[in-house]
Write a protein that binds this DNA or RNA. Structure first.
Lengths: 192, 192
DNA sequence: CGTGGAGTTGAATACGATCAACACCGGTGG
DNA sequence: CCACCGGTGTTGATCGTATTCAACTCCACG
């Protein structure tokens, strides 16, 4: 169960004193399944690193329907506004879909992070990788059918299909649970 | 017509010698309307800064249909794989939809950039802002109708609606030109 | 001029949403 | 231990939105 500091090799960029100060801004905690960590509109949107378990971020539209923006299993970072900017209200909800061990980067931590005139490359690299994921998702949403998106999801995140309930996969794919059920039926039939 | 160096105040982070070296890796050039700058699959995907004019990046699906990933008017940076990683094949096409003045960051520039253990905060901040744009787009694609997405596009990029042909807006919204035409008719009728 | 791309319109179609009903567990409490 | 319950997933009927295909207009540009 690696910590954020381990995962990003942040230590290598800092003096021991700086490292300790940074660590003091990171709070480890346990969250129960279903626990809501952040609600849309909250200020000082915290950022979370998942050591164990799985979080998700999602929006809720006018009709009360949830749309999952991302899943965050072990090793992932998740925040409520993809902008890590301070004082901007969260755009998403975040909750735990499994009992999880997480690290919380609080307001002071983010502020300290903001002050630095440069950003460690591993952090930048992680962001860049995530951009690629989002880009791919947009292209898929624009050009692929629900079936194709589901197959792509299975190929890209085989483990998630086991871990999360089907209705959440549907929510992530941008379709209804009923539609996903029918797609799966079609796959089962057509396969032999 | 600001340059990349101006726009991101990169100069403030560097010694004069470093700055000059950096500038030597940036090539200014003029591209004609319709000119293709980068094709999907090319290695060493270059990155472009738009001083004047407008570029776009897009994918082409199996049926030959184009899907516009982003427009890049003045002051924007655009690249073919959102990952600025070296040696990864471009995932998108890039071309000029207007005659444009651009700055090209070539392979050496990117390599030099990659070597640095840290990233200037303005560059990071720009990336973070773009993430927020992509996040919003994904939520819209999943939860909003074509009409809502069009209205959101008009509100968010009022100038683009004037500059680019309608079929490209449709392509950006993830719908067909016919569908957009009908949506516009509906708006015109319903409005008085 | 005339030609081709852009936009519009209409008819037929397809894909996914909605609504409603039901089967299938996995608890929880009697 | 069993009965009940709520949540998850399935199925079918119907509806709506956007696609596809084809025809036509209108310019911009050669």
């Amino acid at each position: 169960m690696r910590s954020f500091i381990d995962e990003f090799a942040i230590g290598a960029f800092l003096l021991p004193a700086e490292l300790e100060m940074l660590q003091s801004g990171i709070i480890s905690k346990h969250v129960a399944k279903g626990q809501v960590l952040l609600k849309k509109g909250e200020l000082y949107g915290k950022t979370y690193f998942v050591k164990q378990g799985c979080l998700r971020s999602y929006s809720v539209d006018e009709k009360g329907k949830e749309h999952i923006f991302m899943f965050a299993p072990e090793g992932w970072i998740i925040s409520a506004n993809e902008s890590l900017l301070p004082n901007t209200p969260a755009e998403l909800y975040i909750d735990a879909i499994e009992a999880s061990e997480i690290e919380v980067f609080d307001r002071e931590f983010m502020a300290r992070f903001e002050e630095s005139p440069t950003v460690p490359r591993p952090v930048f690299a992680k962001l860049v990788k995530r951009m690629a994921v989002l880009q791919r998702r947009i292209i898929m949403l624009m050009s692929a059918t629900a079936l194709e998106r589901y197959q792509d999801f299975l190929a890209t995140y085989p483990e998630m299909a086991q871990r999360v309930p089907q209705k959440m996969i549907a929510s992530y794919l941008g379709i209804t649970p009923e539609a996903l059920s029918k797609i799966r039926r079609g796959l089962a039939k057509g396969h032999h």
